Computed example of a mutant assay.
Amino acid sequence: MFKLLLILLAYCASVVFPAPPFSEDHPTEITSSHQTQSQVFSLPDEKPCTWDDSFGEVDCGTFTITFGDGSLLGWKLYTTLRLPNFSTHFDLNCSNLGDVWTTAPSAPGLPYIISIHGGNGCISTNFWWEAWDNLWIKYANQWVDVASDERCTSVYWNGKGRRCVIETKPADPAPKSEVEVGGATVRG
């Protein structure tokens, strides 16, 4: 019994107080910054950078635009722009039955202008809340069709809202001269 207790204590001590590392585990020579960076990024415990826009975690290199207010009627023209540590609300310009572009308020950290074509985002009734057609977001070279783009999902308890996650600094930010959006040619 005593021998079993000693073995158990020795095991616990080895787990709680591991042996000091060998000098081969910690070289004394200075490594280049490239080697140090590759070692830092390969750590298995490291988590990617994310932030919470109140609908869930998104990557740090993105911002979100949410359409709708979550109410029973689902006022879709109510729009929210969110970045880490920044949020602003504005309404879509719904003149001409939503066939106009709204410029979103400027936001810190966004190098380009956000333009939103209201389309069916201007129809805010309980019967048409699923129709998001012709609601488009233009940001740098990114064109987002809110109704069908995979970056956009339904939100709110009643599903009467739409959230789009958009890259803040796209790799090729120059807009194309003409882009086909929703069956119409739009010049960038």
Rank of each mutant, 00 (worst) to 15 (best):
L83V: 11
S115Q: 09
V144G: 00
C122R: 00
S106M: 06
K138F: 08
S148C: 02
G56W: 06
S38N: 12
V144A: 00
G74F: 10
K160N: 11
D91Y: 14
W132R: 00
P44F: 01
G98E: 01
N141H: 07
G121A: 01
T88L: 02
T168M: 12
S148Y: 09
F67R: 03
P111M: 03
C60T: 06
G118H: 01
I116A: 03
I113E: 08
L83S: 11
L92D: 00
R151W: 04
F2Y: 09
G188L: 08
F55H: 10
G118K: 01
L72V: 09
W136V: 09
M1V: 10
G188V: 08
G61W: 06
Y156I: 08
G68M: 03
E180A: 04
G74T: 10
T168Q: 07
A140W: 00
H117E: 02
N93K: 12
R82G: 00
T36R: 07
F2L: 12
T31E: 14
S148I: 06
E178G: 08
G183R: 04
A13Y: 14
S95K: 15
W132G: 01
P48I: 15
V165S: 09
T50L: 11
T185W: 08
T168C: 06
P44W: 01
L77P: 01
V58A: 06
K169A: 08
P173K: 13
R187A: 06
R151E: 02
I30W: 09
T50H: 09
D99N: 14
I65L: 15
F2N: 07
S115M: 06
T80C: 03
A107E: 04
G159F: 04
I65M: 15
A19Q: 14
G61M: 09
N85C: 10
Q39G: 08
S33K: 09
E57T: 11
C12K: 12
P105I: 07
F127G: 05
I30F: 10
Y78R: 14
T62L: 03
K76H: 03
E180Y: 05
N85Q: 14
S177V: 15
M1W: 05
F22A: 07
G118P: 01
T62V: 06
V155W: 02
V144I: 15
S115L: 12
G68Y: 02
K3R: 12
G68N: 04
G56V: 12
D52H: 15
V165C: 06
P108K: 04
G74V: 14
F86N: 03
I166C: 07
C49N: 03
C60L: 10
Q35I: 15
A147W: 00
D45A: 11
Y112R: 01
S115E: 05
Q39I: 11
W157V: 11
E24F: 14
E167F: 03
S177I: 15
P105F: 05
E24A: 11
D172G: 05
